[in-house]
């Protein structure tokens, strides 16, 4: 087999990429249309549907809630996930193997089942406020990504450097922040971004954890689409895509995107 793939395969790959890109182009086009209905190619260019997002209070509110939840959830996941990832690598011999598997469980369990279980046990069962339940749900949703990505970057860290610092008199906590953390900075950034985007776009967990006045942007988009079929949804979608692009640009600059494919 020669190194160059068969022309048929190249044609298929080109079609697959066409299939992947066209719908996103259409959403952007529809968002820019000056019409009151969804159409592509756009008829007349206008940004008025983008303005409309901010005129609808439900969108304003849910954008804020989504950003709050994504930021706080990711932060909490990092605070509890970094020590866990560190322990899993540093004390690999002492800790049982199943502990590593435990942190992958949230990916294994269907998200929608997880959301329903939280509704049943937290919101209905224990009377936990919706915002808190939503935050707990998102924290656990992103925890596996945090632990996995940071574990991966700790796997290549030589812990004898840390031992050397400690035996030379550096305090363990100080050593962690001055020796270990700088070496896994890229991993922490990648984990933050991956977790943030996952939380921002989540539907299945949030679905059950919304209530009067509290909802997330994707859930609000779902609700809006089922009632109105105007370009507002397209422009909100573009807004979400822009957030993703911005975030990806940061990843690309810090550590290269191929990192995400691993």
């Amino acid at each position: 087999m020669s190194d160059r793939p068969h022309p048929f395969l190249i044609a298929v790959a080109a079609l697959v990429y066409f299939f992947l890109m066209v719908p996103l182009v259409i959403v952007v086009g529809a968002a820019l249309s000056d019409t009151t209905y969804l159409t592509f190619p756009p008829q007349g260019l206008s940004l008025r549907w983008f303005e409309n997002i901010f005129e609808i209070s439900a969108f304003r509110r849910t954008i804020v809630t989504s950003l709050q939840i994504a930021f706080l959830g990711t932060l909490i996941a990092l605070i509890i996930g970094i020590p866990a990832a560190y322990a899993l690598n540093r004390f690999r011999v002492e800790l049982p193997k199943w502990l590593g598997t435990l942190f992958v469980l949230p990916i294994l369990v269907p998200e929608i089942v997880f959301g329903f279980a939280l509704l049943k046990s937290l919101t209905v069962g224990a009377g936990v406020p919706i915002f808190a339940a939503l935050l707990i749900g998102h924290t656990l949703l992103v925890l596996p990504y945090v632990v996995r990505v940071i574990s991966a970057s700790l796997a290549s860290f030589d812990f004898s450097i840390e031992e050397a610092a400690i035996s030379l008199g550096s305090a363990p906590l100080k050593t962690f922040f001055t020796i270990v953390m700088p070496n896994v900075r890229a991993g922490v950034i990648a984990a933050f971004i991956l977790a943030f985007i996952t939380s921002l776009n989540d539907v299945s967990v949030s679905l059950f954890l919304t209530g009067p006045g509290i909802s997330t942007l994707p859930i609000q988009i779902l609700a809006h689409v089922e009632q109105f079929f105007d370009p507002t949804v397209a422009s909100v979608s573009v807004l979400l895509m822009f957030l993703t692009v911005a975030v990806m640009a940061v990843v690309e600059r810090t550590l290269g995107l191929t990192f995400l494919a691993k």
Partner: peptide, 10 residues
Amino acid sequence: LTGVVVRAFA
């Protein structure tokens, strides 16, 4: 990385 809602909406 684009949300599932956006991709279904397309």
